[in-house]
């Protein structure tokens, strides 16, 4: 699957309920928030710098476990936006992560 621009990843995460909690010179941290609670174990880290303007599949697929997804295609859909916020919530409900 194709590379994903870093900016698109950040934008997509925010659209799915993630909130940026930290921002340093090297990384941005995004934590999933739902019903005013931070689910700190459901998160994503995005690296900054010239080597990370786009994320190749080898990098974005490694977000799968932290995003609590089962398939690389789901990660791709979440990070490129075909997956809607409600669809992601439904996955997290099925996984028992949120109620």
């Amino acid at each position: 699957m194709a590379d994903i621009p870093r900016r698109k990843i950040a934008k997509s995460l925010k659209a799915k309920g993630f909130v940026q909690t930290k921002s340093g010179s090297d990384h941005e941290w995004f934590v999933f928030c739902y019903n005013d609670k931070e689910y700190k174990h459901i998160m994503a880290k995005i690296s900054r710098g010239s080597s990370y303007k786009t994320y190749p599949e080898s990098l974005w697929k490694r977000m799968k476990i932290m995003l609590r997804l089962q398939k690389n295609q789901e990660v791709h859909d979440l990070l490129t936006c075909p997956m809607k916020h409600e669809q992601y919530l439904e996955i997290l409900r099925k996984e028992g992560e949120i109620s």
Binding site: Y34, N35, K37, E38, Y39, K40, H41, I42, G96, E97, I98, S99
Partner: peptide, 11 residues
């Protein structure tokens, strides 16, 4: 008390 149930389990 600040964590939702699934994060408490993960902790």
């Amino acid at each position: 008390k600040d964590l939702p149930p699934s994060t408490r389990e993960f902790k």
